[in-house]
Design a protein around this nucleic acid. Structure first.
Length: 421
RNA sequence: CGGGGCGUAGUAUACCGGUAGUACGUCUGGUUUGGGACCAGAUAGACCGAGUUCGAUUCUCGGCGCCCCGACCA
């Protein structure tokens, strides 16, 4: 991508109506635009990050045997009335509207009911189970107070997977595999060191659910971490009984603020029983499927990455989600000879499959470097008159500032993905 | 939803009961060119409505919007 053609621009100053680091940096860098409180536009660079995060999640979900669908954002009240969750006293964040033709409609804030109903069409026998179905879908939640930039919005995409199993044991087996997949996801996007599987309230379905909490001062939650065991518990479940049950020594717990980046929880047979998702077992009896629900918000994850990994100069994207691997900085591009040469470098890299943001704008070096720091691509490569004369490119890692000089051959090899991968 | 704060060019801000200034941006021209350069010129603004007043961007009321703390987050 030639930066000269990008319609977004960076800003020196943070917007006055945002305090959170994620929103300030993402807006300054032109990744997102605030449409209104709790609703953000993903601009070209931001969308690339967003899609990369989705791809990381999708790979893990597919590896678990998940099958992807897209449900509807518009929802029929009927299934919700069956479960009792159409009631505003039960679920207070509904966006609801009227159909012109008459009747009510809801904007989906989650999808347990419609998906469970859907699956009754396809699950009849124990031979049809287990099944794992997921989607990336826009959710609408009429939050009383949106806050923290893209961390808590009224409209957001969520990856929600629902598991349908024959029994508790089969459910647990998947649940644990999914927990591992979640840890892989957070590790892949660079948050592995600071993200903990966390015991949390299980609601009405089970004693616990599991949250994935990333340590950050920007977080809304308080967790207690047992570093040795590598687990944590949410303050909402920190009671003497729970500590005893989990064999956790209270003295070893460290208190941290954290961001909930994922949540998985057992649903039991609540929805399957209510909506008639039963199957015939080997004895010919009708049995409700045992369900689980597994959520991750890609947008919140993007915000968390910014909160945790950015520095005073700007954003630092891990390679797994960066919009481009390389930020090629073209200096002295007002000289046609240098420009042509630098264009050639850009084309060589992209032809080899390297994703490159090429700063071909005729600006001073300082401005370009400042933009590169703010935008946060993993590698910055400088092409300039000096580089051309020396035959050496300066390659700088954004995350640690390490500099390496390499010639063109090495440069191309350095960034070209290994065909074996 | 309780409490607090705020609303001025594209962005960030200032002043003022007598119609608004600065910086950045943008545009023109020139000098520059490896860490947000300099000179000259230009561009562009008071959230909406009502009231008080000779006069309101300023004061009052209402609305709308935004932020923060708390509550909430199935």
């Amino acid at each position: 991508m030639r930066q000269s053609t990008l319609f977004t621009k960076t800003r020196k100053e943070a917007p006055s109506d945002e305090v959170s680091k994620n929103a300030q940096l993402l807006i300054r860098a032109g990744y997102i635009h605030k449409e209104m409180a709790g609703a953000y536009v993903y601009l070209p660079l931001g969308l690339r990050v967003f899609n990369n995060i989705i791809e990381v999640i999708r790979r893990e979900m597919n590896a678990l045997g998940g099958q992807e669908v897209v449900m509807t954002a518009l929802q029929d009240p009927e299934v919700w009335k069956v479960s009792g969750r159409w009631n505003d006293d039960i679920v207070d964040i509904w966006f609801k509207s009227q159909l012109k033709a008459g009747g009510e409609i809801g904007f989906g804030n989650t999808h347990e009911e419609p998906l469970t109903k859907l699956m009754t069409q396809y699950i009849a026998s124990y031979k049809d189970l287990p099944k794992y179905v997921y989607q990336f879908q826009t959710k609408f939640r009429n939050e009383i107070r949106a806050k923290s930039g893209i961390m808590r919005t009224r409209e957001f995409v969520m990856k929600d997977l629902y598991s349908f199993s024959r029994n508790e044991e089969e459910f647990r087996e998947f649940y644990e595999r999914c927990a591992d997949a979640y840890l892989n996801i957070f590790k892949t996007v660079g948050l592995g060191e600071v993200t903990y599987r966390t015991f949390a309230s299980g609601g009405s379905f089970s004693k616990f659910s599991d949250e994935f909490q990333t340590v950050s001062d920007a977080g809304e939650d308080i967790i207690y971490i047992d570093e040795e065991k590598g687990i944590a518990l949410n303050e909402e479940v920190k009671t003497p009984e729970v500590l005893h049950d989990l064999k956790i020594d209270e003295g070893k717990l460290v208190t941290k603020k954290s961001i909930e980046v994922g949540n998985i929880f057992p649903l039991g047979t609540k929805y399957s029983a209510a909506l008639g998702l039963t199957y015939k077992n080997e004895s010919g009896e009708d049995v409700p499927a045992v369900m689980g629900s597994y959520g991750i918000g890609p947008g919140r994850l993007m915000g968390t990455i910014v909160e945790v990994l950015s520095d005073e100069k700007g954003i630092v994207w891990p390679e797994s989600v960066a919009p481009y691997q390389v930020h090629l900085i073209g200096l002295n591009v007002d000289d046609p000879e240098i420009r042509e040469w630098t264009d050639g470098i850009y084309e060589s890299l992209t032809a080899r499959g390297v994703t490159v943001l090429y700063d071909d704008r005729d600006l001073r070096a300082g401005e370009k470097f400042a933009d590169a720091d703010l935008l946060g691509m993993p590698y910055r490569v400088v092409a300039s008159k000096r580089a051309k004369e020396e035959g050496l490119f300066e390659v700088v890692q954004r995350k640690n500032g390490e500099v390496e000089k390499m010639d063109e051959g090495k440069l191309l090899g350095f960034f070209t993905p290994d065909p074996e991968d």
